[in-house]
Every structure is written in C-alpha cells, then in structure tokens.
Amino acid sequence: MSHLPDSVGLSDDVPRRAHMFVDESKNRGYIIAIAFVASRLVHQVRRDLRKLRASGARSIHFQTTTDQQRKAVVNLIVASGVTSVILESRAAKRSNPRQGCIRTTAAIAIASDARMIILDRDESLETQDRRWLYAELRKTDVRYDHLDRHSEPLLWIADAVAWCWQRGGVWREMVMPAVSQVVQVEP
C-alpha cells in the first residue's frame, strides 16, 4: 500500500471522514485537484452549486463558462469551507503522471479516513484508475467511483479548483483560500 511521501504530511485543514471529489487538468503540466467536502455539508453545497448553473445547462465546466459564473462558483467554494489539495506532477506524459497522482489520492484518502472518492468520469481512464485504486484501497473502507459531471455537482468544485490553479494569476489568488496543500508527486 502506498503512502504519502515522508516530506508531505497531511494538512490539518483537510477534514477527516470527508467525501473527496477529483478532477484533473492537463493544460500546463499535469495536476489533480481534490475537493474535500465534509459529510454534513454535502447536500447544502450541492444545492448551492446547482443554483449557479446556467439555465438549461446540465453542469458547470470552467473551461467553457463565463468569468461571471466562474467568480460566483469560486466565491461559493471559499465561503462554504470546502478544502482542496492540489497534486502536481512534473513527470513526462509518457511516464503516466496520472498513476502517481491517483495512487497519492488513495494515500490521502487513507490518511484522512475519507468516506469515498468520486472521480470525474473519463471512460478511457476508468479501467486503469480502478486497478490503481483497488491496489491501494482494497484493505480499507474507502469507496470509490467514477461519475459524470452532470450527475454530481460536487465534481464542479474539483474542476474549478484545477482550472483556477492551472490558469494562475488572479484566478489562483481567488481560489487560494480553499487550497490547504500542494503536493509534488514524483513519477
């Protein structure tokens, strides 16, 4: 079973027994954003996010939405007390940076005694993700699944955090209060 690198302790800001929502960004390097939503906040934050969705839209996707909607979502994330961890990998694409990040996500789930991990569904990655997660989590109570963004609004948080982090500048500054830790994942 993998573990967090010795040099990385889990931040005290990361809630225990939370639900973890995971999305990636590959625009400038490879990152995974993990949004931790405390069990007691899941329904309220989900409801609040749905209210921010554009009329007729099935979900919020930061790559294709307006700056006004982005700001509203980031403000909600920060105000709701959601905590995020960023996993950054500088590994070359050919060395599969996702593997290290998914395994580190599992290690963080164990360290934080998470209830569940929900990953944004990408059918081309799902089989391998399940293999890595099973290898890391098979002797734990942590559940995991892949869901489509339109079926789980809390995935929008991970998407927002990942997009803002990769975008940098004012967007990173806006989301920074919700980011408790940045972990460099080695290949």
Rank of each mutant, 00 (worst) to 15 (best):
A135H: 14
D23A: 05
R167G: 05
R46G: 12
E173Q: 15
R17A: 07
S80A: 15
S84R: 01
L49V: 10
V182C: 06
F36R: 03
L10G: 08
Q99N: 08
S89A: 04
Q68C: 05
R167Q: 14
A160C: 12
F62M: 12
I34R: 00
L41V: 04
A33K: 01
G9T: 14
V85Q: 00
Q181W: 07
A91T: 14
L119R: 03
L10E: 08
V183D: 00
V175I: 15
N96K: 11
D148L: 09
W163S: 03
L52I: 07
S59N: 07
V82I: 15
F21E: 03
D145H: 08
A72E: 12
I157K: 06
T65Y: 05
T140K: 13
A107Y: 10
G29A: 06
T104C: 14
R131M: 10
L49W: 05
V73P: 02
A135C: 12
A18I: 03
L49A: 08
C164W: 04
L76N: 08
S7L: 04
P97C: 09
T83Y: 03
A162P: 04
L125Y: 06
I86Q: 00
M174L: 14
T65R: 01
V14T: 07
A35I: 02
M1Q: 12
V74P: 04
S55D: 05
S180G: 15
R50F: 08
R70N: 04
R130W: 09
A114L: 02
K51V: 14
P187I: 10
D159R: 02
V22N: 02
R46H: 15
A35T: 02
V42P: 09
T64N: 14
T140N: 13
V74L: 10
R17N: 08
A111V: 11
A33E: 02
I31G: 00
H150V: 05
T66C: 05
R46L: 09
F62D: 00
H146W: 07
K93E: 15
L87R: 01
Q63V: 11
E123T: 14
F62S: 01
S25Y: 01
D122L: 10
S180K: 05
F62E: 01
T140H: 13
A35Q: 03
L52A: 02
T65S: 11
N75D: 15
W156L: 04
F62W: 03
I117R: 02
